[in-house]
Nucleic acid binder design. Structure first.
Lengths: 327, 327
DNA sequence: CTGAAAGCGCTTACAG
DNA sequence: CTGAAAGCGCTTACAG
């Protein structure tokens, strides 16, 4: 392995000069710079990041803390984070927290020992003290912990308004809203958007809590549809829940979209694979991840960041679970 | 930050003794051990992994190289790897390679500089020289590069036999096999299983290449079904392809499972969300990932490993895209 | 603009 | 069984 010492010797300068040149810190004469450049090229020298970390107490590792990569929302997010990280020379460590504070805390502590540069956190435990005390650059997804931590989220309320209107515009007169978990900020924003929109009309509606889980959603939807067969529209707070609702409808022999229209939320790949294809409010998950990574890296590198809250636009994707607009 | 030096001072021994004790390398007297233990506890000392890495040229990082975490097969694999890694004190770095040799090579090189402990590789580029020359513990998924590298895979051939028989047992007389990419070992094993089984019968069949991609699969299946409307069974080499085939059938107005039965391969969550639910040959993806991680860690720690090839069993999951068995 | 030297926090022959 | 010392490969005041 060739070290900075070898480079210094070959270039005829001190290691300090080589280091300063390589890190563009401090002045280096033209000649010295040229000599070092040549020596580096000739020896194919590459800096040892571990040795550097030991000094600077910083690495180019970033931690991505999320509940569970298995949840269809997260792979695309992880992909975006990794793409951006890679392009800036960072490496990402995957941390599945299962929303457990001890797991998160544990990750933060063991990674701090590795001088991790920062964290991107997509978790509900964000208000736990281990984040506030982490003393490290952090960027949050979907949940603001405090003003100091930049947050990226979709425009969930706007999305819910779009989704609700989609059902209204298509003639639904009795809408079931599958509301997501109460602890989830985005789910609550979606709820607000739905309520605000529906209450401006005289359309019937009911709201039911429903986890973002397929089998549970199916059961809850089935129950609701049995209770009230006149339901003619379902707005689910997630695509997985929408898939559950579709399954329930099929089991009950309810025709979609003729007798029942369904709109999901997320824009996950699953939606297009269903039959009929799921009409949904699509988030730009990749973009969220990319922004999160970019903002984190800016913070790590002490660059200015323009804003602390990023709202990524959302859009309605019309597929087969809704009919054409009625006049 | 408290260092090994502080511990040594408090315990009244040298840092060498502390280090030896902590790493259980070399002899340490009872008294010294006790003193160190007490000092460590009192100071809440934790070893600095970066400083250690610099000396030992090893870290507890493991790299997971896969084509794209966005492909529904991989999140569960990644989850398993991470779970096992965590329980043994390792941390996993996510590397999306897009099957590009340069990307893989680049990852390997930059991570080697970080003294990465080993790699788990789920990629088709495994025969590229950068693996053979990596000079690091590697475990492969689904593809053997050479005898030195342990490999974990599903029993793909057996699975294909199961899937084919499922169609045969249910009366299919004209089967379309959606064969996966030619470069993919598992896809070829599935093909072999299919061929072996079907050729023992006088049932009509045809084979078509088909990438593991939804829209492409849909198109290919649609074309095939148009060409030959008498097809009454489709065996797809992946669940995503099966989903594409189902979509095609629905578009063409072909009733599943009455006029057409479909069997997938993978056992991905998507399968149960489809309507009707997808009958499929399920792999135990989590188990594959867990074994891969366990084997890699054994190699890293120079433990014996029992075998070099692990075949994880596969099982047939019957859902709604097939009928009941005919006599 | 540059170099000698100390230091980051550990490990590991080596001598005793 | 144990300690002094060198070393892992870099960075960073400090003095010049």
């Amino acid at each position: 392995m060739t070290t900075i010492r070898d480079v210094a010797k070959k270039a005829g300068v001190s290691v300090a000069t080589v280091s300063r040149f390589l890190n563009s810190t401090g002045y280096v004469s033209q000649e010295a710079a040229a000599a070092v450049t040549a020596a580096v090229a000739e020896l194919q020298y590459e800096l040892n990041p571990v040795a550097r970390s030991l000094n600077t107490k910083k690495s180019n590792l970033i931690g991505l803390i999320l509940p569970d990569i298995t949840n269809p929302f997260f792979p695309e997010l992880a992909r975006a984070v990794e793409d951006v990280a890679l392009s800036y020379g960072y490496t990402v460590i995957l941390c599945n927290s299962d929303e457990k504070p001890e797991k998160e805390k544990n990750y933060i502590e063991t990674l701090k020992k590795k001088y991790i540069a920062g964290f991107i956190v997509a978790s509900n435990q964000l208000d736990a003290p281990h984040y506030a005390n982490a003393n490290l650059p952090i960027v949050a997804l979907d949940r603001a912990i405090n003003e100091k931590i930049p947050t990226i989220s979709s425009n969930n309320k706007e999305g819910a308004i779009l989704g609700t209107k989609a059902l209204l515009d298509r003639g639904c007169k009795n809408i079931l809203f599958l509301r997501g978990p109460e602890e989830l900020n985005p789910a609550n924003d979606r709820y607000d958007g739905f309520m605000e929109t529906i209450q401006q009309t005289d359309v019937n509606f009911r709201v039911v809590f429903c986890p973002f889980h397929f089998a549970d959603s199916q059961e809850i939807a089935e129950q609701a549809l049995r209770d009230d067969p006149s339901i003619d529209g379902i707005f689910a707070s997630s695509d997985v829940s929408a898939a559950g609702a579709l399954k329930a409808a099929s089991l009950l022999g309810i025709a979609v979209p003729d007798a029942l229209q369904v709109v999901g939320f997320d824009g996950v790949a699953l939606g297009e694979m269903l039959t009929p294809g799921l009409t949904t409010v699509a988030q730009d998950v990749y973009k969220m991840g990319a922004i999160a990574a970019r903002v984190l890296i800016k913070r790590i590198e002490n660059q200015e960041i323009e804003q602390h809250f990023y709202q990524v636009p959302v859009k309605l994707v019309i597929r087969g679970t809704t009919r054409s607009v009625t006049e």
